[in-house]
Design a protein around this nucleic acid. Structure first.
Lengths: 239, 239
DNA sequence: TTGCTTTTCGTCGTTATGACGATAATCCCG
DNA sequence: CGGGATTATCGTCATAACGACGAAAAGCAA
């Protein structure tokens, strides 16, 4: 029973919302393998590091961001033989949900790091990063249902409409502003008033909120309605 | 930048329900480190294996079970330096939910493998397996809320009461049999009638069901009530 | 001022839920 | 064979949550 030796890397699925689109941080690979292609930021785990530490270090090195700026959790681990031509490499992927920070890219490691809309990069990534990205997006989607983590995409103070935009962007749905407002302000500990107002574009000024102390949402916000009411005799709308 | 070399193992959190208790499969370690202590079954990933394949192989080798007997998913990965005195070892933990199979333990690898109630082993496991077990139990608990995976703890045909016992055991709560019956039989695709009846101990015979085609539960079964109704001025019941 | 936009508060009918009553179908014990 | 115990299943009721939508509030532009 020979103990195969592995290299272990961490890869980062950094998600944010910019320009009304879900975007992911990618780096253009400057060296083989997959030179010139886009890939998730990441790197090898050092000899004295825990996995989460390595991921946080890579986050700082490649983007200048801090895990505490948003939300950070382990996503999954990928180790298919042949996933990396350099040898047997297992990668532990981490997922981060980040606000749209002013100076997002100031990396040192990566040649070019950039936020890219997830829709424009699907299928083009190096290694098995397409699969990792897809898993990260799905994780983010379901996290929004049962946790208040949508606030991780927002700056410290935000409006209900900002939060709604997060859900609409990540879930690719359109939500009723009135019902959404009721649910968010009614869910215990989801948000709490910050005590100011702001006008985003037009219309009535909106209250500012901060993220509340809740760590889970009861009741959750559901992606699909609790029950497609089983009726749809015609497709008419009430004009 | 020296690429540290790692060993990679898989560890299995195998959960089942036996004798009305949540139990986990453990092996008594026959060799150092941690000789004589209980540990999660697991082993090194071979050179040509994907991680999931290695976990499935260990499952077969150590317990004779098959992943398809129940439910099987990757749990999380643990790689703290020093977690294994043999060197830098990263372990990918897998979680399996299994029915109470007739011949559960027939391992070849492990000296002694046995189902142990999770309450009796908390805090006594080798390596960081206490933490892994705790994460696995918590994952199982939340999976029961949003997925029909409680059926993975049941044999192919089961009664509503069997399913309720799964929830009561895993969540450590007591559920109202009437409301539970309504929710389970009402949730779309959760269970479907198998067309027989059986008497478990006493009382009226129960209908047999099979697991349905649903992969998620809408609406979910919630551990904590949607809202502790905020009122409790007195404790009287209307009698 | 008149419009337009967005936020925020309410209303209404339907569905889901927890508490619990009632009935059905079996076994046990005399 | 009949009553009691036990469990499964169906129903009822009040309340909470939800989707659809009306309407008022509060700003800007013209």
């Amino acid at each position: 029973m020979t103990r195969t030796e592995f290299s272990v890397t961490v890869d980062l699925v950094l998600l944010t919302i910019r320009q009304a689109a879900l975007q992911v941080m990618l780096v253009s690979r400057g060296i083989p393998p997959h030179q010139g292609r886009w890939a998730l930021p990441g790197g090898f785990v050092h000899g004295d590091e825990d996995l989460g530490e390595a991921a946080a270090r890579e986050l700082r090195e490649e983007t200048g961001l801090d895990p505490r700026d948003g939300y950070f959790e382990q996503l999954a681990t990928y180790g298919r033989p042949g996933r990396d031509p350099r040898g047997r490499v297992v990668t532990v992927a981490y997922l981060a949900l980040l606000p749209d920070l002013p100076t997002p890219v100031a990396g040192s490691d990566a040649a070019g790091a950039a936020w890219r809309p997830v829709d424009e990069v699907r299928g083009d990534l190096a290694f098995d990063h397409d699969e990792i990205l897809a898993d990260g997006i799905e994780r983010a989607r379901s996290k929004l249902e049962y946790t208040p983590l949508a606030t991780a995409f927002c700056p410290p103070e935000f409006t209900v409409a900002d939060l709604r935009a997060v859900y609409e962007t990540v879930w690719r749905v359109r939500l009723d502003p009135r019902n959404f407002h009721r649910k968010v302000t009614g869910a215990d500990g989801f948000v709490e008033p910050a005590g100011g107002t702001v006008i985003r574009d037009r219309g009535r000024p909106a209250q500012l909120y901060r993220r509340g102390p809740a760590t889970s949402l009861h009741p959750p916000l559901m992606r699909e309605p609790t029950r497609p009411p089983d009726q749809r005799p015609d497709g008419r709308r009430t004009s």
